[in-house]
Simulated scan of single mutants.
Amino acid sequence: MPVIINAHQLSRLIDRTIGHIADEFTTVLHGIRLEADATFLYAVASDRHTVAAARYRHHGLDGTEPLARTLPASCLTSLREWTGAQPGSDPVSITLAEGRVRFSSPHSELGVAVDDSLAFLNWRGILRGVIEQTDGTGGEFPVLDTQLLSRFAAADDMVRVRVAADQQAVLIVGEDFLGAQMPARTRRDGVGAETLTTLAQVHTFWQPTLPAIEAATMTDGIPAEPRRHRYEASESIAETVQDLLKHTMRTTHELFSTDISSQAFAAYATSGVMAWSAYRYLEALHRADPKLAATVVAETAGQLDDGALGEFAWDAAKNAGHDPQKWQDQFDKQLAGRKDSNPESVQGQAATTAV
């Protein structure tokens, strides 16, 4: 039948759900459920207190029989190491055989022993119920176990949370991700978790600390972030995207008021093209792997603040198998040719660069 997905996305499906598997005493939930339909490959896990379902649009599903097997927890470390060793863009075919799930890439294969008859919870029905549950009328809201809540850290870099009522599961939504967490009824120390169940009770309890003063929103009540110096690069993806788009618009706008034959026109055009290209690449990387995108933005910000971009580019060129010295010789030759033909222009360019 095989289902085809690239190695990177298969790794990400595992990472987003592995924290939710149950312990070895709950056999049917002690692993990750892989299921596929005509459109998506799903990875699902649950420890009975949380449910996590991640999906990705696969590249093909041959045949009409849907894929549905539970990968035991004992194989997940090996499977994750195998997917991580494949080039991220390589296609991985997932096929079923009796008692096995086989993962095949262009370079290697991995077989995983599974129990074909092992059932799994009705995760679609559970998540559908959480989505459709109605708001409570008593004003109570659920208490959540923070250790369980932390298991959703790999779901996405940003998630939406819907709280309906006390004793009802909390819905957690990310990009191609649905999750739910059951409310806690007792604390881990055995003490009941029934205190402060309504906003009115919270208000009364905190009244001595929060007297009758004018309320403020977080936007108004928290001091604004200090303005960065113009040479400081942001480590935030949102700010980096904003800066790239603003730069693209600014430089392309400047083209209309610049002589097309001038060096400034070429500089504006090149700068705008590079900013737009960087935005598109960052957007694609963020969709594919938000955590990797955040890491790259932070590392790039550090390199930009360091300022040794020429050295970084030289090392990167050598590591990629290029000859940066040959490039430098070509640059020097071109600069010498422009200097011979128009010395004033080259002197002006050097002065501008120095400023």
Score class of each variant (00 low, 15 high):
158 M>H: 12
172 I>R: 10
167 Q>W: 08
174 G>E: 03
166 D>H: 14
154 A>T: 04
153 A>H: 11
161 V>S: 05
159 V>G: 08
153 A>L: 05
151 R>S: 06
162 R>S: 15
159 V>K: 13
153 A>R: 15
154 A>I: 00
152 F>N: 00
173 V>Q: 11
169 A>I: 04
161 V>G: 06
163 V>A: 13
164 A>W: 13
154 A>K: 02
169 A>V: 02
168 Q>S: 10
158 M>F: 08
153 A>W: 06
164 A>L: 14
160 R>K: 15
166 D>M: 13
163 V>T: 09
150 S>M: 11
170 V>Y: 06
150 S>P: 06
175 E>P: 09
154 A>W: 02
167 Q>D: 06
179 G>P: 00
167 Q>P: 03
174 G>M: 00
152 F>A: 01
157 D>E: 12
152 F>S: 02
170 V>L: 03
170 V>K: 01
162 R>D: 15
170 V>W: 05
166 D>Q: 15
150 S>E: 15
171 L>M: 01
178 L>Q: 09
159 V>N: 06
168 Q>E: 10
171 L>W: 01
166 D>N: 14
151 R>D: 07
166 D>Y: 12
150 S>Y: 11
169 A>K: 12
164 A>H: 15
176 D>C: 09
150 S>D: 13
167 Q>E: 07
153 A>Y: 06
160 R>E: 08
166 D>I: 12
169 A>E: 13
178 L>R: 10
169 A>T: 05
152 F>R: 01
167 Q>G: 09
151 R>I: 05
164 A>N: 15
166 D>W: 12
160 R>F: 11
179 G>I: 03
161 V>L: 14
179 G>A: 00
160 R>W: 10
171 L>A: 05
176 D>Q: 12
175 E>W: 09
